[in-house]
Amino acid sequence: MNTTARILITVLLITVATLTTRATLANTPTIRLFPTTVVEDLRQTGNVARDMETGLQEVIGRLDQQQELYHESKCDGAEDDSGCQRLARQIGASYLEMLTIMDERLPDMEHTVNNTRLSLEKSLRNELGRKMTPWTLQETLIGSDANKTVSKSSPTLRGRSGMRLSERFNQYYQLVATSGAKGDQSLAVLASDIYLDMEETSLLIQRTRQEIARATLMEQLNQSFGIITPEMIEVVGGVKSILFGDEEGQALVAGPPPGSVEQAYRSPLEQ
């Protein structure tokens, strides 16, 4: 009788514990920041960026070689030299080719970037903006345990300029596609990061498209004189850093301050 009672009590306790855990999980708000359309848009943007990089890689490589030859031939300051003028025209032709490729590919890029941006904008507005108070947003970000140690695999915050454009979108896609195992707190940061990046990229593409027409016209005029303008070199450098990344942009992450760690105490006042 005594043993039966004990077994019954144990079973009862386990049942209560299970139900409590389920209830707690059910109460945790789930946010839907990455519907399948966003995932698909990200993949598409990555593909378009890769196509543009492939198209531009050859012409940018050629431009680099031509500029090197121009400097080695001591053409700076010897613009009247006929050989230097020929080299300058070749550089100008490659530059025009680069502008043409960009002009062809940028509309696709703009379209996919805008699609991703708009999908994310809607998710962020509804899920984080309208359904949450600042306190629930904080609780989402902090996760179930405020005192847990910071995860090493937390998504990196903004500052991805040292990365190829296609690689960046590929990483976003991978992060989002495998996000099922991550908590909502990572997703909120990730969605915000991608959305702000898309905003900037979208603006940049818009400005670049406006500039391409002007730069093409200017270079067509310059072709007749065989001049290399500083603007040309600047534009090529800019395109290279956007598409293929630069080394200076790597974000540094500060480590925690040194010292002992003890945080087992929980106050009854703690929220």
Binding site: L124, R125, S192
Partner: peptide
């Protein structure tokens, strides 16, 4: 994180 998420969310809200 709050700074980043608020920046994105508020941009989305104002859009």
């Amino acid at each position: 994180e709050v700074e980043l998420v608020l920046e994105a969310t508020c941009t989305a809200c104002s859009a």
